[in-house]
Computed example of a mutant assay.
Amino acid sequence: MGKESTPGGADALASARTGDVVLITCPSREAVVADISAQYVSVRWPWNQIDPESMMQWNGLRAIPLAPDARDWSDEPFQVTTPPSSLHRGGVCEVGIPDTVAYVVHVAQFSEPLDVGWFPRPNTYVSLVAHGVKIFPDMEEIGFTLDPDGEEPIESQLICRPYSFLEDGDEAADSEGRMWKYRAPWNWTPFDNGPGAFPVWPLHLACRNGEENPDARANVAHATRFGGHGSEIARWLECAGLAEVPRLPPAVFGEDFPG
């Protein structure tokens, strides 16, 4: 990735918003094997320390799938790179995240650090789903979560952000003169409650954070000279490895995902 790995060094994750497609990686580190089965290896987690005041009573272990045919393989970004034939209880293995592409489905921010059983207690959790994996509204568990400020030296790079030239809450007029409010990642609400689910490009930014913003207006006008909502979605689908748009919440929904 071209930079030194440091704790909390998750650049794209630190500023993530719903819909971002990111590349994540974490250098491997030695971990002690606590137990092993046909499909999983349980390791003593080499980064986090047990929180003695936690109500969760974490035992310091983490179970990691050994092969892609494991049920939750796509829900665990960390992998054991040591060959399974070399693993044995009490031995040492290498655990890390190989280059992995995933898309952000939720960013949760907590008013107080969350009690999860280990230190540091997270202030933010970014929930992601692996490239090419579909999600459905009735799914109880979705993807995996990462702490942008956690102890794991995760590196991340933004690959694609739908409507990267807009900020959540922007108000814009489309080429037909209709006013719309934008909610990340790709949600639009017309002011007139008329037909249509999205504005027609080019767009004219009318208001950002309650004020006019000439520089942002010029950027939006330039970005929407060609193409449209459909091309923006098609670009995202290709990066996310999906054939159809999943149901992702507008950022304003906050903690309500998946709804």
Rank of each mutant, 00 (worst) to 15 (best):
F165L: 01
R178A: 11
A38V: 14
F119P: 00
G177K: 07
F110M: 05
V32N: 09
S156Q: 09
D174I: 06
W188C: 00
D75I: 00
D174C: 08
D72V: 09
Y103M: 03
E141P: 12
E238W: 02
A240G: 00
G227R: 00
P65R: 02
L87F: 00
V116R: 09
A70M: 07
D11W: 09
E76R: 06
S156R: 12
D35G: 10
P120L: 08
C207W: 14
E152I: 12
G228N: 09
G241S: 07
R44M: 14
W47Q: 05
P137T: 13
A240D: 06
P202T: 04
F110H: 10
A234Q: 08
P162T: 05
P214T: 10
A10L: 00
V80Y: 06
Q157R: 14
P258D: 04
C160D: 07
F110V: 02
W58M: 04
T224R: 03
A14R: 07
E155D: 15
D11V: 11
A130F: 04
T124I: 12
T189N: 09
G117K: 05
H222T: 08
K134F: 06
W201M: 14
A31K: 01
S175R: 14
V129M: 11
E176L: 13
T224M: 04
G150T: 07
P83Y: 02
E244P: 00
V129W: 05
E151G: 01
S42F: 12
S175G: 10
E141W: 13
G90R: 08
P7N: 13
G2V: 03
H88P: 00
N123G: 11
D192M: 06
D35W: 13
S42A: 12
E151F: 00
F226M: 04
T18S: 05
W45A: 03
E171M: 14
G194Y: 09
Y103H: 01
C160S: 13
W73P: 00
T145Q: 15
A31S: 08
W188S: 02
G230N: 13
T224H: 03
Q39H: 10
G259F: 15
D174E: 13
L242F: 01
D168I: 06
T100F: 00
R71F: 12
L158Q: 03
A216W: 04
W45Q: 08
A243R: 13
V200S: 11
T6W: 15
C93V: 12
A14C: 13
A234L: 02
P27C: 10
Y40S: 06
V41P: 05
A12D: 02
S127V: 07
A218M: 02
I154C: 05
R62Y: 08
F165C: 03
S42M: 12
D138C: 03
R178I: 07
R44L: 11
G143K: 04
P65Y: 10
W118D: 00
V245K: 04
V32F: 01
P84Q: 07
L237M: 03
P120G: 05
I233L: 10
L237I: 00
Y125K: 12
G9M: 03
F78Q: 05
G194D: 12
M56Y: 13
M55D: 10
S156K: 14
P190L: 09
P153V: 01
P246G: 01
D20P: 03
I135K: 04
Q57T: 10
P190F: 09
A172V: 15
P65V: 09
S5W: 15
F136G: 06
T25L: 07
H88S: 13
F165M: 06
G230P: 04
G117R: 04
A70H: 05
